[in-house]
Amino acid sequence: MAGENISISMIKKLILGILLFIPGLFLFLHSSEGLLSPDKDLRLYLPGEAETGGWKGDGLPQIYVGEDLFTYINGGAEIYHEYGFKQVIVQDFLNKNKKSISLEIFEMSNPESAYGMYTFKTNPGGEELALGDEAQLADYYMNFWKGKFIITLTGFDEDEGTIKGLQKIARAVEAKIKISGKKPPLVSFLPKKDLLTQSIKYFKGNLGLYNSYPFFARDVFGIDKGIKGDYREVYSFYIIKYKNDNECQKRFDEAKVGFEGSPRYRDFMFDKEELIQVRDGKGKLIFISRFKRYILIVRGILSQVQARKIFASFALRSDI
C-alpha cells in the first residue's frame, strides 16, 4: 500500500513536471537560439501564398547546410564559405502565367558575413530599394540583406509582372526576419566625399579581394577584414585591417616583395616613408601604404601627391 502511494505521488510529480516543462520548451523552441527557431529551420521564413500575390511554391524547398552548398552551387560555393556560410533554403515559385521566380535565403555566420556577401553579389547600377538593411534590384534579380541573412530572388525574365513578384516575395520574407544587422565598422572608414556607395565591397578573404582586383593569386595580404570603395570612377581605395601592428608590418613587407617581383607590375618604387608605388598592366598606378594596423591601397588615375593626401586623411581619424 505504501509503495502504491509512493508510485502515485511520483506520477503526480512527473505530470506536474511535464506541465511546467512544456511552456518552457515552447519558449525555448521559439527563442532565437532554440532548435526550431527560424535560425535552425529556414522554412519558417518562406512566405505563404496569401503573402505573395498569387505566386505559388513550385515543388518542395531544398535546404543545404554547410559543405552541402557545393552540391547546390558547385564551384560557386567557395565564396560563400569564405564569408561565413551556415545554410540556405531554396524555393521556386510559379504564377498563373507559368512565370518562375527562385528564392534563396542564405543564413550566414553573422551580420558582417551577410553584409559582405551582399556587397559581393551586388554591383553599381542597380536600383536601391528600401528593404531590409539594404536592397538592390537589378534587371531580373534582386538581393537584400537583413541581420545575418542574405536573400537573392531571381526572375527568369524582365517582365513587369515578374519584377513585381520579386519585390512582393522579398517583402514577405523581409517581414519574417525580425532582427536587423549593422554594417561592419570598417565601412565608416571609407571617406564619404565622392564615394560611389554601390561600389563598396567588404572582404573576408582573398577570394573576395581577388574578384574585386587580382592583386595576387596567392593570399599575400592575409586578408581577414577589408573594404574597398570607388571614387567617381577615378580611383579605388582599399583598407585592410589586421589584428595588430606587427602582423600588418609583416604583410606589408610581403606585399612589397610581391609587387616588386611580380611580372604583373612595373615601375616599382619604394621610398623612405614606406610608400610602395607600382603600375599595373592596364597602366594604372597603385600606391600602398601602412598606418598602424591598416594597409591602405589606392589604385587608379591619380598622382603620388593625391595618394599621399588620401593616406594622410586616413591617419587623422581619431577612431583608428
Partner: peptide, 28 residues
Amino acid sequence: MGLNSRKSNRSFHKEGWRTNRSSIEFLD
C-alpha cells in the same frame, strides 16, 4: 571539370573541397 568525378574535382581545391584562400593558382 564536367567530365571529372566530384571527388577528383574536390582535389583541385586544396584542403579538401574548399578552396584554400591562397590556392587560386593551384586550382588553375
